[in-house]
Nucleic acid binder design. Structure first.
Lengths: 118, 118
DNA sequence: ACCATGTTTCGACATTACCGGAAATACGGA
DNA sequence: TCCGTATTTCCGGTAATGTCGAAACATGGT
């Protein structure tokens, strides 16, 4: 018996919720901001630590969470680990929000997103 | 002695983090989707409950969280409470994400947000 | 093999979050 | 005032999360 599609389709809403949750604390949102500001080069853990003043073990947990939700990408450079913001994930998330607010339901006018921001 | 601006400026990052956190669980993200799909009319609590099949007390907690982060607006209609998605809050949040990803750091091309979405 | 540096894991704690049944409250109508 | 419906508050249990020092691990160089 073939299971209904509901079983096979990964729950996108749950996935996006997890992404939002990963950006749902100030330290992690700051990390993402920092990585975006250093895009596409990214930063090594020590740089992030110095910039945000987070203890190494705490920082490692936050980075792990961001990694698990696919929001950052990692590559090794000798003894360093370089983290970069995942453009794909952020684009997906931004696209989801945009679709829900602007495309599907037209609750927000696209022009409203481009606000003056100092 | 004048305190540095860092003291007076409310921490916007923390605020946005709280908003992301509020949308960071599947039940609450579904509630926001539902309210957006019913925008601008909104829905009364009972409708949301029937639609999402969440016990009343649990639902009330989620709605309270969304209210506290300013993501929904409420008005009373007799014995009913009508919830609507807060366009202002969502626009602010979307604007923040857009600015961080597209404007400030140009990590994502704006055209990439408008993806085909079924 | 050893060392220095960078990063993660371990272990523990406090805090907060999620969930839901039962009771309490709010409102409008009879 | 009493009743029925709508919604919240109260209370408890359980699980998840944020934090961080200390120890372990990884890597490249000597």
């Amino acid at each position: 018996m073939v299971p209904s599609t509901a079983y096979r389709v990964p729950d996108l809403v749950a996935r996006y919720a997890d992404m939002f949750s990963a950006m749902g604390t100030a330290p992690r949102l700051r990390i993402m901001q920092l990585l975006l500001s250093a895009h596409p080069t990214g930063l090594v853990v020590g740089d992030i630590q110095n910039e945000l003043d987070i203890p190494n073990s705490t920082l490692s947990h936050h980075l792990d969470k961001l990694k698990n939700e696919g929001l950052v990408q990692i590559r090794r450079e000798g003894t360093f680990l370089r983290y970069t913001a995942s453009v794909d994930a952020l684009q997906e998330l931004l696209g989801f929000l945009y679709a829900e607010c602007c495309t599907r339901n037209k609750a927000i006018k696209p022009s409203g997103i481009l606000q003056i921001r100092k």
